[in-house]
Design a protein around this nucleic acid. Structure first.
Ligand SMILES: Nc1ncnc2c1ncn2[C@@H]1O[C@H](COP(=O)(O)OP(=O)(O)OP(=O)(O)O)[C@@H](O)[C@H]1O
Length: 767
DNA sequence: CGTTGAATCTGGCGA
DNA sequence: AGATTCAACG
């Protein structure tokens, strides 16, 4: 079936159903069957969630594996099918039609994807116990009359205690929910805390402010200065800096951008006059387009507090209680923000609880200063507390991680007493290369969830001997130091049919080649944002040169964001040929079309059309497609709320959610894993040069803390793997095992080697 | 002027 | 490897 046919068919089906949503979610399956049996089958299976959404590593767009092997071929065009048909009005859109790169590889055996068992033990319902505290925890959770600073190791119930401290405020009537503020450093932590509070307090918890420093600051800024509309992250920052200082080389731009970032965040030390000057120029530009840089959010909020007494008083009166988790990650500016909200010398100090673990300080690169913990204790005359019982990890994992962190000179050396018993040894696995590493992890996961692969491959885990498979995909996480090494794992999982969930840091949609998406939404929401406009044109009509872009830029600036007459502007007439102006006008029509679609059909529709447009020019690799799916989901959730979507785009991490309830293995960076826990953890790419990194400015102790964070996420089983060689920029580099592995005493680990790489040879089954 | 091939570069974590 | 930028060529 050719894709044209599929498009036509799909269009026909939508027509019959009334809308694509109706088709996908409401129309009786039999009716869809009547239009086309194959489509009916697909829709039916989609609805039953019997679907593994397989990211298109083979060059297809968002392939959804709904069919068995023999069926797949019949649906060759399913990519377009699920990507929906293109809007006719755009068929001959601007730009020269470029052929989309299509790579087709043989797909995995679809049948494999279906034999994966679903859910096992972690069906812990609402009855999950969040209330029980030990004596030390209880004491902390009940202290409201004096600031408290808690230092405690991983798994000691810090977050649990903090949640109950917050809940206690409400239950005891000491504070109303809307008088309570809990600040976190990551969105994940905020979500986690909010969901715990919901369980503890029910609906009333919604009134409690649980936010990251950044999103809180953004909210404060936009409340009092509604003029600010566009958010610029590292990627947007780079493009503006490149525009302002065009004479700089790539490397110089990056160095400058890094320093400007630190300056904006108030953590540049010492402040270099040239950097300050450059940063101010940059901020002028942002100011003029009604934008703000993420790095400047906290500093700007502080400025508002300092310059507008009534604003500060408003927040001081509002919050009667304040809690900060992961306090070791705080930086100078955030500390100032905090002390502005809760004046340590003031008369009416709110209840304050801060909790942290110096051994888990891993944000040195963005200016966090663990010394601020001591400063807090001194400034607030806080009562210091400790927790020492680890409830999360087996005795083995506690000891092993203790061995590693013990190598840090600056380790607090806190004693950690495991509550849980000794467990299986830490499994260390040597693979010949990163592909084999991924494969082995995939096989081990299969074995853990009930497969038999590992018996065949003579591998690491052969079950608990009782034939039961105690784990589900959702119990398992693979952690990696860098996104790059995580990607290899994801690819391997896709190939081996392991359902995977990926959590990205800052939105990939603010970076090329997707930055056009971010810019389009920015521009639609903020017509003053001519930088966004320039980026859109540069990305979508790449043939235009800098001078021509400048002409458009100037023209738009002088027209106050009105796009219509730009091409008549003198500067544009002079620098662009008639054909080029025509293409720009087509682009304008496209933007207006998107705007209308967003208003009437929602952000989802707009985003979908943009992605489609983008794919006329660029192909999409594995990760891209996974991400597109995910972003479309996010967009759908925001309906027609453009502002909400933008905020989420720039300030939140994005996770592939895909099919609801689908059990997935989490693949995360060490940083992203902080605060989470999994019964089974794999640490991948434990190699010198990766973990620890080997750069001139690498802080070895921070690298070790990161590794420690990764290890301590595990409850029962910890696997550490490394590859002897790894492809890097086309070169194959030899790599030796991470020193952190050796730091674990030998009796706590077992080591496995993989046979040397055999080309294209499949191990025959032994049984 | 537009196309093509060669040279260059890729640097981490997150809001 | 793969994307992007640059130089030489038609
Ligand atoms: N008193 C307790 N009784 C039973 N379980 C507990 C208790 N305290 C904590 N736990 C459990 O221990 C685990 C770790 O708790 P929590 O996530 O609060 O630790 P944490 O100190 O914040 O860890 P980390 O710093 O590593 O993120 C959780 O599964 C929690 O439910």
């Amino acid at each position: 079936m050719s894709s044209k046919n599929v498009q036509a068919l799909y269009a026909k089906s939508i027509q019959a159903a009334g809308s694509e949503d109706v088709l996908l979610s409401q129309m009786p399956v039999e009716d869809v069957m009547a239009i086309d049996p194959l489509l009916g089958l697909a829709v039916g299976r989609l609805r039953e969630n019997k679907v593994i959404r397989k990211p298109g590593y083979d060059g297809e767009y968002g392939v959804i594996r709904v069919f068995e092997d023999n069926e797949v071929d019949r649906l060759r065009g399913q990519n377009e099918l699920f990507a929906r048909a293109p809007a006719n009005s755009l068929a001959r859109a601007f730009g020269k039609p470029t052929t989309m790169k299509t790579v087709r590889k043989k797909g995995v055996k679809a049948a494999e994807l279906f034999k994966t068992p679903v859910k096992k033990k972690n069906d812990m319902p609402a009855s999950v116990d969040l209330e029980t505290l030990n004596t030390e925890q209880t004491e902390i959770a009940g202290t409201y009359d004096c600031p408290v600073a808690v230092t405690a190791g991983p798994g000691t119930g810090k977050t649990r205690t903090l949640a109950l401290w917050l809940a206690g405020l409400v239950r005891s009537g000491k504070a109303k929910p809307d008088q309570i503020l809990a600040v976190t450093f990551t969105n994940k932590a905020a979500e986690e805390l909010a969901s715990r509070l919901k369980i503890l307090l029910g609906g009333g918890s919604a009134e409690i402010t649980v936010q990251t420093f950044h999103s809180l600051a953004f909210q404060i800024i936009t409340t009092w200065y509604p003029r600010v509309k566009s958010i610029y992250d590292a990627s947007g920052r780079n493009s503006i800096i490149r525009y302002i200082f065009p004479e700089n080389t790539q490397g110089a731009i990056r160095a400058l951008a890094d320093k400007i970032e630190a300056f904006l965040d108030g953590t540049l030390d010492p402040v270099e006059p040239e950097i300050e000057a450059a940063a101010l120029k940059y901020q002028d530009m942002l100011e003029s387009i009604h934008g703000i840089d993420v790095a400047a959010l906290c500093s700007e909020a502080n400025l508002i507090f300092e310059s507008r007494r009534e604003v500060l008083d408003y927040y001081r009166n509002k919050y009667k209680a304040l809690a900060v988790d992961e306090f070791q990650d705080i930086n100078k500016t955030q500390y100032e923000f905090l002390s502005l909200l809760a004046d340590p010398s003031g008369r009416a100090l709110p209840s304050i609880l801060v909790i942290g673990d110096p051994d888990q300080a891993v944000y040195g690169f963005r200016g966090s200063d663990p010394g601020l913990f001591k400063k807090f204790v001194a400034d607030y005359k806080a009562r210091e507390k400790m927790l020492s019982s680890n409830y999360r990890s087996s005795g083995t994992i506690c000891m092993a991680s203790g061995d590693v962190i013990g190598h840090n000179q600056t380790s607090a050396g806190m004693n950690l007493t495991p509550v849980r018993q000794t467990g299986p040894l830490v499994s260390v696995f040597h693979a010949p290369d990163e592909y084999k590493e991924a494969e082995q992890i995939a096989k081990t996961i299969r074995a853990l969830v009930g497969g038999t692969d590992l018996i065949e491959s003579g591998g690491i885990y052969t079950g608990d001997g009782n034939g039961s498979s105690p784990y589900s995909f959702g119990d398992i996480a693979v952690l990696a130091r860098t996104h790059r090494s995580a990607e290899h794992i994801i690819e391997g999982f896709v190939e081996h049919g392991i359902p995977v969930s990926v959590r990205q840091a800052s939105s990939p949609f603010t970076q090329p080649p997707y930055s056009a998406i971010a810019d389009i939404f920015r521009f639609l929401a903020n017509r003053q944002d001519i930088v966004a406009y320039r980026n859109i044109v540069a990305r979508l009509i790449p043939e235009l040169e800098a001078l021509q872009l400048d002409a458009l830029f100037v023209a738009l600036a002088s027209s106050g964001g009105l796009v219509e007459h730009i091409t008549q502007h003198r500067a544009v007439q002079e620098t662009l040929s008639e054909g080029e102006r025509g293409r720009v006008e087509t682009l304008h029509r496209f933007l207006e079309f998107i705007e209308a679609e967003v208003e009437t059909q929602g952000v989802y529709k707009g985003l979908f059309l943009i992605l489609e447009k983008l794919h006329e020019r660029i192909g999409a690799d594995l990760e891209a497609k996974l991400l597109e799916e995910m972003l479309l989901e996010t967009a759908r959730a925001h309906g027609t709320n453009l502002q909400g979507f933008i905020r989420s785009l720039f300030l939140e991490q994005h996770e592939t959610v895909g099919m609801p309830n689908a059990e997935r293995v989490s693949v995360l960076t060490f940083h992203a894993a902080k605060g989470l826990e999994f019964p089974v953890v794999f640490i991948a790419a434990a190699e010198e040069g990766i973990s620890p990194q080997a750069r001139t400015d690498t802080d070895l102790e921070e690298e070790r803390r990161l590794f420690y964070v990764a290890m301590t996420r595990a409850g029962e089983r910890l696997f550490i793997s490394h590859a002897a060689s790894r492809d890097l920029y086309g070169r194959t580099e030899a790599a030796s095992p991470s020193r952190f592995i050796d730091e674990i005493r030998t009796v706590l680990r077992t080591t496995f080697h993989m046979p040397k790489r055999r080309k294209k040879f499949n191990q025959p089954s032994l049984f």
